[in-house]
Amino acid sequence: MYKKMKKIGKEILKEIALSFFFCASIILLISWLYSKEIRFGISLINKIAIVENKKSQPITYNEIKKRLDHYPNYKEKYGNLKIPTINVELPIYHGDSMDILRYGVGHYAGSYFPGEGGTIIFAGHNNTGFFRELPNINIEDKIEVETLYGTFYYQVTETKIISESDLASFPLQNESEVLILYTCYPVTSLGYTNKRYIVYATRIEDIYE
């Protein structure tokens, strides 16, 4: 009796395993074929959660002081990042917490804003497609940062791979405007990595110069 029950149990488990196998295969196939559509749908559903800005003041830029008079709130979308040579066009959010990075480029709050003449640091996920193409960027490629208070242009000057603990590669200064983009490396990694791919770009007056 016990042997019979054991055999039946084994058969049931096998059938369950086979069912899971086929279901998982179908899920993987759908997520691979329609990954962009799924991400877009999720971002639409969560849009209200990411932008909590019911009382914010208008974001304004003071040309004389080279500072913003009013800043975006944390988690607020305030611009778009465009890199034509690698087909990147992404929203920019103030802040770079993990929930922000799910929806676009995160602006490190301890760095300056575009137009303020200092170091600007943007982070983006690698394997979900946001900054996946970053290693394909070339020196002298143009970057456009379109914000609610103006559009700013940058030209790539350097790229490199660093250790995550190498904070000296993120020099915070306010003598010249430098845009730093970074993502986890290798860009195909699925989980934790201890390396970062960094792109440095200096500000230029016009993207067409």
């Binding site: 944390y74 917490s97 990075l101 996920h125 394997n127 934790y192």
Partner: peptide, 14 residues
Amino acid sequence: EFTRVTFLVKQTGR
């Protein structure tokens, strides 16, 4: 919300 005080370099691999 003004800011969240966090570490500089984030883990951007999902």
